[in-house]
Design a protein around this nucleic acid. Structure first.
Length: 681
DNA sequence: AAAAAAT
């Protein structure tokens, strides 16, 4: 049994010296978790300097030299930074109204924890409130920090506050989601958040977050991780996978305490307080985008509330200085985008030598975005413990070839979990598909907008930035209160557009894919896919902007022959969700055309459509090699344009090698592949 | 085609 990888009962090294002596006055010193309960003596913590955090709006202002933690975790996404007193654009794409207590100001969770009514005064009591973990590990026991009503409200919201409610997850919909686990000795799924196996403190935090029942991913992942196993999970965003890895990891961390001093960290091998200021996180979570790492971090803050575990987040585009200071003050669980993490490693500020848990979230997206070199460097090229000395969890919506290779390299004897799609089964959303030629789209849209009236917000998705502009201009000319959001608009414009949309002054928002994911806007009653996406998963994400948190919504799609690439997936989805299926869809699907758009094979399921197989079971292959680039179907332009192995069920096994593996079951209808779907869009 | 990612 691979069991030795939990945060083992590593005995604390009581002889560790407290950092105080070496800490330069007024500078942050890294304080290892097991020493954090100590009084800071000369106050190495932020309390030494943090201070004078202004009581008014000030987080966007110039940084004072001290330990004011303003902004540490709430980086400005606007290049210029929000003006004081203005709402700000948060990393996860939300518009956060200005709230003087939200960020680094005193008393907030990020606050250096000293002045201004914060309950953490400097001096003797060494409490430092950051992240959310302000508990301690003392004498081999977890000593949770004091309750903090304000922080609780910030993290969990006020009870019955709809804006914080269950983040749009309708739990009743989870019951139908199929989960399939395979591998050696799959542990029995749990059915509840109970002790055992989960830690009481974690359960308390889960309760605070109003999570009642584990989602299907969590039911499986909790025992899998807690049994020390590696995991490869195919699950979509929104399936509860963040909890799926955070719960077991934090639970074990709470029970087992921090690791001993870093095994062989750089430099002296031990903490070099004050001088080296290097952090040795025990858990590392990698995710592709800022918005994702921020979301994960926010979840981590919730579940680490009052615990000894300090969550941190780092990503590009934000001030690195504040991230450095944040890390210095304790970093047990690090959520990061790959590029920034590599940067910090290069700067010698983070060591991975102590990693016990490695999570790769949205692995397929990370590869799509070209992160493979950084990821490999982080996992294989630095001081990260080897595959046998850590526990590794990979999450990916799909399981194409390159992900299989990562799994082979990063995981050991893993359990493969395949989780059905959430959302497609949501009956809160009524999905309509209308046949509309491109030339008719505008007038049909006007019809809809006229009849649909002014109730709620309407989100219109288009495929290009230009279209977003022209369509919103058109609507405005037609006297509709519309605005647009896309990647060519400045952050400020995007922020503005979103604000106008949210507050209902512009209840019509024309958007590109920028708004498809990660945006949580209440009261969207209608999503119109003016242009259908080519990827059915994008469709699912888009319509998921409505019908959230138990509300109902309508999703209308304009379909014409230009969209036949998604017709099969769309058809399948509609049926799956028990929606009305218009006849033209069936017939266009039957028209077939040798090229189905996704090269899915007979019984196979396409990319995002649930069952991605545990390829280890698929026999065959010429053993060994991956076939290299040439083995990729060898089909000229075709393969690259697909990214990777959409083979669905035909997913080539590791050894599949050559071209046969790749399109094997795919219905390219064009085995030569030379022409491929190059004119796909 | 759009989006995102270290500087």
């Amino acid at each position: 049994m691979a069991d030795g990888l939990q945060m083992g009962n590593l005995s604390l090294n009581e002889s560790q010296h407290a950092p105080q002596g070496n800490a330069p006055v007024g500078r942050a010193a890294y304080i290892p978790p097991h020493l954090r309960q100590r009084g800071p003596g000369p106050a190495p913590g932020p309390s030494a300097t943090a201070d004078a955090a202004p009581s008014g709006p000030g987080f966007g202002g110039p940084r004072d030299g001290g330990g004011n933690w303003a902004n540490a975790n709430a980086p400005n996404f606007s290049p210029r930074g929000p003006a004081n007193g203005m709402p700000s654009w948060t990393p996860d794409g939300k518009l956060r109204p200005f709230n003087p207590n939200a960020y680094g100001n005193p008393g907030s969770s990020y606050g250096g924890g000293s002045s201004g009514g914060g309950s953490y005064s400097g001096g003797g009591s060494s409490q430092q409130a950051r992240g959310s973990g302000d508990g301690q590990w003392r004498d081999g026991k977890h000593v949770p920090g004091p309750a903090n009503a304000r922080l609780e409200r910030e993290l969990f919201g006020v009870p019955n506050d709809p804006s914080k409610q269950q983040t749009g997850i309708n739990f009743s919909n989870y019951d139908d989601i199929p989960v399939e686990a395979s591998g050696n000795d799959v542990p029995e799924p749990v059915t509840q958040f109970t002790n055992p196996p989960l830690d009481d403190h974690l359960i308390a935090n889960i309760k605070l977050a109003s999570y009642i029942i584990p989602t299907p991913v969590q039911k499986y992942s909790v025992p899998i991780v807690m049994n020390g196993r590696d995991l490869m999970a195919c699950a979509q965003t929104g399936s509860g996978k963040t909890g799926g890895f955070l719960f077991p990891i934090l639970s074990q961390a709470f029970q087992n305490g921090p690791s001993a001093a870093p095994a062989q960290g750089g430099g002296g091998g031990q903490f070099s307080y004050g001088r080296q200021r290097k952090a040795y996180p025990t858990s590392l979570i990698l995710a592709p985008t800022r918005e994702l790492v921020s979301q994960i971090f926010e979840e981590a803050r919730k579940f680490a509330y009052r615990s000894w575990v300090r969550p941190c987040v780092v990503y590009g585009g934000a001030d690195i200085g504040s991230q450095l200071r944040q890390i210095e003050r304790g970093c047990d669980l690090l959520v990061a985008t790959p590029g920034r993490l590599v940067d910090l490693i290069e700067r010698g500020r983070i060591s991975l030598a102590n990693i016990k848990y490695l999570v790769l979230d949205e692995a397929d997206r990370m590869l799509d975005m070209g992160f493979e070199p950084q990821i490999r460097r982080i996992v294989e090229g630095e001081d990260m413990p080897g595959v046998d000395d850590r526990q590794t969890l990979m999450f990916s919506a799909t399981f194409p070839r390159d992900i299989q290779m990562l799994a082979r390299d990063f995981l050991k004897d893993y359990i493969f979990l395949s989780v059905g799609r959430v959302g497609s089964t949501s009956e809160n959303i009524t999905q309509k598909v209308e046949y509309v030629e491109d030339a008719d789209k505008r007038s049909v849209l006007l019809d809809i907008l006229h009849t649909h009236g002014s109730t709620g917000l309407t989100l219109i998705f288009v495929e290009t930035k230009r279209m977003a502009d022209s369509l919103s201009d058109f609507l405005i000319n037609q006297r509709f209160p519309a605005t647009a959001i896309h990647g060519d608009r400045t952050q400020r414009e995007r922020e503005r557009a979103l604000e106008l949309f949210r507050n209902g002054r512009c209840p019509i928002l024309v958007a590109t894919a920028v708004a498809a994911r990660g945006l949580d806007i209440p009261n969207v009653t209608h999503v119109i896919n003016y242009d259908l996406p080519t990827d059915i998963d994008d469709y699912v994400h888009r319509i998921g902007r409505t019908g959230r948190a138990g509300n109902t919504g309508i999703a209308t799609a304009f379909f014409n022959r230009g969209n036949r690439g998604v017709v099969r997936d769309l058809l399948e989805l509609l049926k799956e969700a028990h929606q009305e299926v218009p006849a033209f869809l069936e017939s266009i699907a039957r028209e077939g055309s040798g090229f189905s758009g996704r090269g899915r094979g007979g019984g196979g399921r396409g990319r995002g459509a649930t069952a991605t197989r545990d390829v280890r079971r698929i026999p065959g292959g010429m053993g060994g090699g991956f076939g290299g680039a040439g083995g990729y179907g060898g089909s000229g332009g075709a393969a690259p344009s697909y990214g990777s192995g959409y083979g669905g069920a035909a997913a080539p096994s590791y050894g599949g090698g050559g071209g046969a593996g790749y399109g094997g079951g795919g219905s390219y209808g064009n085995p030569s592949g030379s022409s491929g779907p190059s004119s796909w869009w």
